[in-house]
Computed example of a mutant assay.
Amino acid sequence: MMAGTFEGFGQKAIPFLKALDFHQSREWFQENRDLYERELYEPFGDLVETLSQRFAAAGLGLRGDRKRSLFRINRDVRFAKDKRPYNSHLSAILSPDGSKMEQGVFFVYIGLDRCFAGVAWWQPGPELLQAMRKAIATKPAEFRGLIGKLKKAGLDLDTEGCMKRAPRGFEHVTEADLAQAVRNRHFAVRQTIDPAAIHTPALVDELVDFTVRARPLLDWGRAIQGKVSAG
């Protein structure tokens, strides 16, 4: 085995998150930091770097590493009413440049409440979002082709956070599927991960398979993004 190859999260990964969520104490976390690093943090770094290699081999244009890809387990409570210091999940992003600032990303979330992966154009900036909505309205066959490819791969666009009314300038889009699509604030597909599956190396194959099936969404967004950047 090469160094850093993902072999599965520790059996105590989820129990650790459950205990952390119960205690929500810096003292408790420091006392159990070794457990956190061994069962969760280090395996997550291995997962990100193993996926980065596999995504490169598959030509997916997504990469990451253990230093830049993982989100902190500490919550930012500066402006939050909820002052609990720790999340009950750990998550990471792999992106075109390896940073968390890019669009068209792979996301993985291992949590007490659920485990899932996603491929997303998540809350893209106004210019890119406008261009995506325009592409839906002016090239409906192309967009429906994307939806068809995703459905064939067992995936559906996420409708979470969808606007209740048509955005300004798109009131003329009346066909139900297109009207729904232009109201999206982001374009994403997700796959639920069985919590029992996080403890084996086979999780990598599952996540690579999901991302390959979600590639049409990446390709669609990148084509639009390329025109926005060129313009």
Rank of each mutant, 00 (worst) to 15 (best):
residue 41 Y to N: 14
residue 72 R to H: 09
residue 162 C to F: 08
residue 20 L to P: 00
residue 168 R to Y: 07
residue 158 D to G: 02
residue 81 K to C: 01
residue 43 P to T: 04
residue 98 G to C: 03
residue 31 E to W: 04
residue 58 A to H: 13
residue 31 E to I: 04
residue 77 V to D: 06
residue 8 G to K: 03
residue 198 I to V: 12
residue 218 L to T: 06
residue 157 L to F: 02
residue 54 R to P: 03
residue 65 D to W: 07
residue 59 G to W: 05
residue 226 G to S: 12
residue 150 L to R: 10
residue 189 V to W: 00
residue 131 A to W: 00
residue 16 F to N: 05
residue 163 M to C: 12
residue 62 L to C: 10
residue 204 V to Q: 00
residue 82 D to M: 09
residue 215 R to P: 02
residue 155 L to A: 06
residue 193 I to F: 02
residue 175 E to K: 15
residue 157 L to T: 09
residue 193 I to R: 03
residue 38 R to K: 13
residue 169 G to E: 01
residue 92 A to C: 06
residue 212 V to L: 05
residue 106 F to S: 03
residue 170 F to N: 00
residue 197 A to E: 13
residue 203 L to C: 04
residue 113 D to T: 12
residue 131 A to P: 01
residue 71 F to R: 01
residue 215 R to W: 04
residue 196 A to G: 06
residue 4 G to D: 05
residue 30 Q to I: 05
residue 76 D to C: 06
residue 119 V to C: 10
residue 219 D to V: 15
residue 42 E to M: 05
residue 190 R to W: 06
residue 140 P to M: 11
residue 148 G to T: 04
residue 222 R to K: 11
residue 59 G to A: 07
residue 70 L to M: 14
residue 30 Q to V: 09
residue 3 A to N: 14
residue 85 P to C: 06
residue 182 V to D: 14
residue 94 L to Y: 08
residue 72 R to N: 11
residue 134 K to S: 13
residue 92 A to V: 00
residue 126 P to Y: 06
residue 12 K to I: 03
residue 63 R to A: 08
residue 226 G to W: 00
residue 44 F to I: 04
residue 32 N to G: 01
residue 91 S to A: 15
residue 188 A to E: 14
residue 167 P to K: 03
residue 146 L to M: 11
residue 54 R to Y: 01
residue 3 A to T: 14
residue 94 L to A: 13
residue 84 R to S: 14
residue 182 V to T: 09
residue 118 G to D: 06
residue 62 L to Q: 09
residue 183 R to V: 00
residue 147 I to H: 05
residue 89 H to N: 12
residue 179 A to R: 11
residue 48 V to A: 06
residue 116 F to L: 14
residue 95 S to A: 13
residue 25 S to F: 08
residue 76 D to Y: 07
residue 210 F to P: 02
residue 119 V to Q: 01
residue 193 I to Q: 01
residue 216 P to E: 02
residue 112 L to T: 00
residue 180 Q to L: 15
residue 152 K to T: 14
residue 88 S to E: 12
residue 214 A to M: 05
residue 90 L to V: 15
residue 108 V to E: 11
residue 226 G to P: 02
residue 132 M to H: 10
residue 41 Y to F: 13
residue 20 L to V: 00
residue 78 R to F: 04
residue 186 H to S: 13
residue 173 V to D: 04
residue 92 A to L: 04
residue 60 L to A: 08
residue 61 G to A: 02
residue 91 S to D: 15
residue 151 K to Y: 10
residue 87 N to G: 00
residue 199 H to L: 03
residue 66 R to W: 01
residue 26 R to K: 15
residue 115 C to R: 07
residue 10 G to R: 02
residue 107 F to G: 10
residue 151 K to F: 09
residue 123 Q to E: 12
residue 184 N to R: 13
residue 81 K to W: 03
residue 61 G to D: 08
residue 121 W to S: 03
residue 81 K to G: 14
residue 65 D to K: 08
residue 115 C to Q: 11
residue 204 V to M: 01
residue 58 A to S: 13
residue 78 R to H: 12
residue 168 R to M: 10
residue 31 E to S: 14
residue 3 A to I: 11
residue 151 K to R: 15
residue 67 K to Q: 14
residue 156 D to H: 13
residue 122 W to F: 15
residue 166 A to C: 03
residue 92 A to R: 03
residue 178 L to A: 12
residue 49 E to Y: 02
residue 161 G to D: 15
residue 28 W to D: 06
residue 53 Q to Y: 03
residue 128 L to I: 07
residue 6 F to T: 10
residue 157 L to A: 07
residue 40 L to N: 04
residue 139 K to L: 08
